[in-house]
């Protein structure tokens, strides 16, 4: 800010609005200093006296703005006061949320309660995934060429119905002739792929739930076809382990993202007593929390997939870890943040 240039000693009386300004200028500059401090370090950085001073200076500045609009035609002054008051308003009335309290509240109450409120939507998500998986498996049994329709080439990575059982087994366990790099890149692909699917399912839900449902259903199809292909070679149990260690978390995350999208879609389809816009806004809150949860779960799934699947090589332990973590998720979502019954 440029400091006010020292005015030359006036030989005539300053006009009314100039006097008004000189009388109050010091207070405004002090307010500006306090605002800077509050904006830089947060309002918590202000001491008790400073906070009091800020509140009182803010009211004085507001007062001055009101008076200046009535008596002054000095555009520079009006613009200054307007900007100063707007800034002070934001500091006083729109302060920053405390990050720690926020995350704590979200984890302990927000997310679990949102999940429990959205059971119908979750059911839709799970249903889409299961229907897709069953249909994928059945269709694969009928005709193996369905596999190529469902599974994109990049995802299959040589694991097609023509591949030998030995090769398929090697992709599930390290140490075999399996291509290490290939599996690693598959993991990353699947990860970013699933993240995008999750975000898409969520965002597209607003178009009447259908796209979310379709995408989740499609994800189920891929899963079902994959499963049935491994099962037809007698590797179903091993695949279950390979998938479970991260898949329990990851597939649940996709279902939850779908549920988030479905919440939005349901708000549009069945708004109840509210207007559609209001319904979208109020249910959007739960939907966003579901999406945060899905994001969290995807990150966990990525960590599991990236590290533990390579370390843990026996199917039993893989199953135990995967479903154990699934149980932990379930316990958190089902139990946390319940109000004590009176």
């Amino acid at each position: 800010m440029t400091p006010a240039a020292p005015a030359p000693a006036p030989a005539v009386d300053p006009i009314r609005s100039a006097r008004f300004r000189t009388e109050r200028e010091a207070g405004w500059l002090r307010l500006d200093v306090l605002l800077r401090k509050a904006e830089r370090d947060g309002t918590a950085a202000l001491g008790y006296d400073e906070a009091l001073e800020l509140a009182s200076l803010y009211r004085q500045a507001m007062n001055a703005l009101s008076v200046a609009r009535a008596i002054s035609m000095d555009k520079a002054l009006l613009t200054y006061l307007d900007a100063l008051c707007a800034r002070a308003y934001l500091v006083v009335y729109a302060p920053q949320e405390s990050l720690r309290g926020l995350i704590g509240r979200l984890l302990v109450q927000g997310i679990p309660q949102a999940v429990r409120r959205s059971l119908p939507a979750l059911l839709i998500g799970a249903l889409a995934m299961m229907l897709g998986a069953v249909l994928g498996a059945v269709l694969f049994d009928v005709d193996h060429s369905w596999f190529y329709t469902f599974v994109p080439g990049g995802l299959a990575d040589g694991r097609t119905p023509e591949a030998s059982t030995a090769y398929l087994r090697s992709t599930l366990f390290d140490g075999g002739p399996g291509d290490h790099d290939g599996l690693g890149s598959f993991a990353t692909f699947l990860f970013s792929h699933n993240t995008q699917i999750a975000i898409l399912t969520f965002a597209l839900g607003v178009f009447l739930t259908l796209p979310s449902f379709v995408l989740t259903f499609y994800n189920g199809l891929v899963l079902g076809a994959f499963w049935q292909m491994f099962a037809s070679k007698g590797l179903g149990y091993e695949l279950a382990g390979w998938l479970s260690i991260h898949g329990v978390t990851e597939i649940a995350a996709i279902c939850i993202a779908c549920a988030g999208g479905a919440q939005l879609g349901l708000a549009v389809l069945l708004p109840g007593d509210e207007t559609r816009r209001d319904a979208l806004r109020s249910r959007g809150r739960d939907a966003v929390k579901l999406m945060i949860l899905a994001g969290l779960m995807l990150v966990c799934a990525a960590v599991l997939e990236g590290f533990f699947r390579q370390i843990v090589q026996t199917t039993e332990i893989r199953l135990a870890v995967g479903w154990g973590i699934g149980a932990l998720w379930f316990a958190w979502l089902a139990l946390a943040g319940r109000e004590a019954r009176a």
Binding site: M1, T2, P3, A4, A5, A7, P8, A9, P10, A11, V12, P14, I15, S17, A18, R21, T22, E25, W28, L29, D32, D74, A76, L77, Y80, L81, D82, A83, L84, A86, R87, L90, L280, R281, G284
Partner: peptide, 25 residues
Amino acid sequence: MVAGTVVVDNPRPVLLPDLSAQAAA
């Protein structure tokens, strides 16, 4: 629109000198 937010310029208060004080007699 979904979130009910708006992006504004951060108000930058700059106090310029009063011109009427410079024009004395």
